[in-house]
Structure formats: structure tokens, C-alpha cells
Design a protein around this nucleic acid. Structure first.
Lengths: 235, 235
DNA sequence: GCCCCCTGTCTGGCTGGCTGCTGATTCTTG
DNA sequence: CAAGAATCAGCAGCCAGCCAGACAGGGGGC
């Protein structure tokens, strides 16, 4: 099940060799048979747990949240994907079909491209440079995820939050008049679900940081005045 | 700097095409120029933060711990790698040389193979199936890491510990006379460093689980009597 | 304009981190 | 093989940080 609205129909036109020469994963994937470019509105689902895992996605623009939903209704965020992240890698695993177990939602307005895993495999076999590029994409994804693990093993919520904010700065930061603004509309609840805390605690800690003059929040957009100072403030 | 003792010298002999036909990453990497097979004793360092990142590793046998060491002396575990895990992927990233920022230690006696990233790149360009296999290896690594994130976002230490034990069962479990034994020698301290807790708490929680009859610990080896029941005991 | 979601704050209660100590186990080394 | 060193496991008491639950005000979206 996919709620995405396809902006352009699947096409296998275009010259794959030319695309590879062009050099970006985007152009290459666009030329694969069955590929599509999708625009997804904020809050819309990209795939649900239980959906068959058969496509690979490349996030071009915006942010995607991967989460796991429990029977209790509780939801935790496994990853906040940024531009150029590959996701849906489950479909790349060998052989037999499997199902998604994460919930993928557009966290902002999203522009992404996708292609069937079978096409991707064929493309890799056809030209090895495709495989190399995807390998690099996945490598950076691994590193990104491991940073998040580092964040989550901090014991006190305060350093956990700070560490998370710094990760967001790295992944979604844009320069502001003073400091760096995290270009996402983050509710306290969303932050809590990402770092394993509760809404109330996040509210309190963000309030503390604000009154210390470390950051500013304007309509759910957080601006960190001095990331370096913030990082130093905690070990 | 590498403290590993090389069991066999580098060699570029062997027929790469044959190796690929053979089908496993191991045989392929063994044929790359500059590859080596290393045996590392428990506790020995594989690479240190600051070492140049130029080799890619494939863990053949045993477990490797990736950790980050802080100035405070505190150490947290980012990943416990199992057999067939690819690591050292930093070296695959594009272009300019970079340095390791994790500490990689043999957690058990380890058998692994490694090759220079440049050789790996060449091999992929030479035969696309190599890239495909590495891509699958990295995909499963991503999933493994994301499972760990799920574990770490559990709020109470009890479910965090249980979730971690179940992960270890999946990755390092061997059937025992009753239940499944985690084939690692885990100190309470090591567990604490992996799930962001303290030694004392782990001691207490493991004691609770033991007195509830969920598990047994024999010389640092944990046996879970009934993983399914344990999983059900927590949401 | 209405409504829902988000933010902010409070109280009470408990989990889990911190400190300090002791005995047990494992590793090292002569 | 045995002695010493080092790490590990277990226990207790104290206290802070965080969660649960509840409620009020406000702002944005439809």
C-alpha cells in the first residue's frame, strides 16, 4: 500500500549508460524500469508495516521518519532520514520476499525517487559503478545510524537531547542570522519519540536550554546559537 | 596502527573470476590485492580512533565490539558485530582519506579478512556481483543497527535489558540443553556500556530475571530458557 | 470560527544512578 | 602450581531525575 502521489509515470526510457556517465544516483535510478519520482505531502505514509518490501527509495528532498508502532499505541522513531539517504533496503536482501516492519512517513514535504529492487539489481549487474554508488550511500547511512546509537546511550536526558540536537544540526541545519536553524518542524512529542523520553521532559529541558540562551524556538523551528559551545557544555 | 597478527601474508594470487563464481564474499575478498586473513585474540585492538581508514573488514568468526571512548574515560558500545558483518565502511566513502573515530576490539577470538578499500572498489568495478554482495551485507548491517536503536529507545531499563538480550540471542545464540545460550562472555559492565546503563543496575536486573527463572548465568555465559516467554513478558 | 494539537507547569512517586564496601572469580607471573 | 593482582559480582543506602497524570492556555489549520 502506498499513499504517495506519483508525479510522473513509470518509464524505462532514457539511456542508462548516459545516466551513469552523468554520475548521480538520482539520474541512474530515474532510468530504471519501473522507477518513479514521487512527491509526498507532510504527514503522508510512504509505506506501512506489512507492506511487501519490493522497492528501494532514494530521498531527494525533505525528511522521512522511520518508526515502529507498538500494540500499546506507543511509537518510536528509528531514523530521521535526510536528503540523499537510501531507504527501503530490506528489499535488497537476498531471495524470498519479505514485508516491511517499519512505518515510513513524510516528515516534511518529500521528493523522492524509487525503483523496484529487481531493477536495481539488474542495473548493478549491468554497470558496477551503480553498485559502488549505492554502497557509498548505504555506508553513510550506517554511520548516521551509529551516531544515533551514541546519542541514545547517554544516560541523562539532558545530554541525550543535546546530542540529538547536534545530530539534527548536522543533518538538517541551515545557517541563520545567528547560529544554525534546524530546518524541521519538530514538536516536543516528536523529539521524545526519537530519543526515548516523554513530551513533558523535553518541554522542560528545552525550556532550560532556552533560558540559558543556548537556543531559540520559533514556530517549531529550533535555532542553535553556538553548536560548538553547546557540544562543549556536555562531555 | 594495527595490533592484529596476520596469519597469512597479503597475496593477490588466485583467480578472481573463479572466486566470484564460488559465490561468497570471503573467497572474493581473499583474492583481492593486499587482502589478508587475520586472527585476533580476545581483547586485542583491531583499529583505534585516529588510525587512517583504509581497509574494509569482513568478520568471519567471533564478535567485534565497536566503541567510542570519551575523555572522561567512559566508553560506550556502538555495535557488537557478529559473523559475516562488514565493518570499517568509513573507508568506502568517497575520495579524501579520513580517520577512524571508533575503537574496534576483538570481543572474542576473531577470524576476519580485510582488504584495502581501493582494491574493493576495483573489484566492484571489475565484477558487479561483488558490489551486489557487499550491498546485501551492508543492508543487513543497517537493519541490525536499527534493531539496536529500537532497543535503546525503551524507557525502562528492564525492557531495555530484555530487548538487548533477545538481540544477542538472535546474533550470538546457540541451542543449549534447555533454551538458548548467548555465546559470549559478557560482564555486567559490558552490558551496561552497550545499553547505556550502569554496572550496578545490570547486576540487579539480571538478578531479578534469574530469580524469576527466566535465565541462567554460568561463567559469564547467559542462557535464556524461553526467549518467546521473555519477549512476551514485556511489550 | 471551531477544534485539535501543541506547549507549559505542577505534584507525587518511583526508578535508576552514585558511592562505598566485600567476597568471588579470573588472569598473570614467577 | 601457587601467589598476587585485577577484574567482576552482589548488596545497601541515598538522592536526583524523570515519568505519570492532569489541566490550562494558545496557536495554527481547515
Amino acid at each position: 500500500m502506498s499513499f504517495s502521489q506519483t508525479a510522473s509515470p513509470s518509464r524505462s526510457s532514457g539511456n542508462v549508460t548516459d545516466a551513469i556517465a552523468g554520475g548521480t544516483l538520482t539520474t541512474i535510478i530515474r532510468c530504471l524500469s519501473g522507477s518513479s519520482l514521487d512527491l509526498v505531502e507532510r504527514g503522508k505514509t510512504i509505506f506501512l508495516p506489512g507492506d511487501p518490501a519490493e522497492r528501494v527509495y532514494l530521498l531527494r528532498c525533505g525528511a522521512v521518519r522511520l518508526s515502529r508502532v507498538y500494540e500499546s499505541g506507543e511509537e518510536i522513531t528509528v531514523a530521521l532520514l535526510r536528503e540523499n539517504s537510501l531507504f527501503g533496503v530490506l528489499s535488497l536482501l537476498t531471495g524470498h520476499r519479505s514485508d516491511r516492519f517499519y512505518h515510513a512517513v513524510a516528515f516534511t514535504r518529500v521528493e523522492m525517487i524509487s525503483a523496484p529492487a529487481t531493477s536495481v539489481r539488474q542495473a548493478i549487474e549491468g554497470d558496477a559503478r551503480v553498485g559502488l554508488m549505492m554502497l557509498q550511500g548505504l555506508s553513510s547511512r550506517v554511520l548516521q545510524t551509529e551516531t544515533m546509537i551514541e546519542t541514545l546511550t547517554h544516560r541523562d536526558m539532558s545530554s541525550r537531547l543535546v546530542s540529538f540536537l547536534l545530530v539534527l544540526c548536522r543533518d538538517f541545519g541551515v545557517p541563520a542570522d545567528q547560529g544554525i536553524t534546524i530546518d524541521l518542524r519538530l514538536s516536543h512529542q516528536a523529539i521524545a519519540e526519537a530519543i526515548g523520553s516523554t513530551r513533558v521532559t523535553i518541554t522542560r529541558l528545552l525550556g532550560d536550554l532556552r533560558s540559558e540562551g543556548m537556543l531559540r524556538i520559533d514556530r517549531k523551528r529550533i535555532t542553535i546559537f553556538d553548536p560548538v559551545a553547546l557540544a562543549r557544555r556536555f562531555s
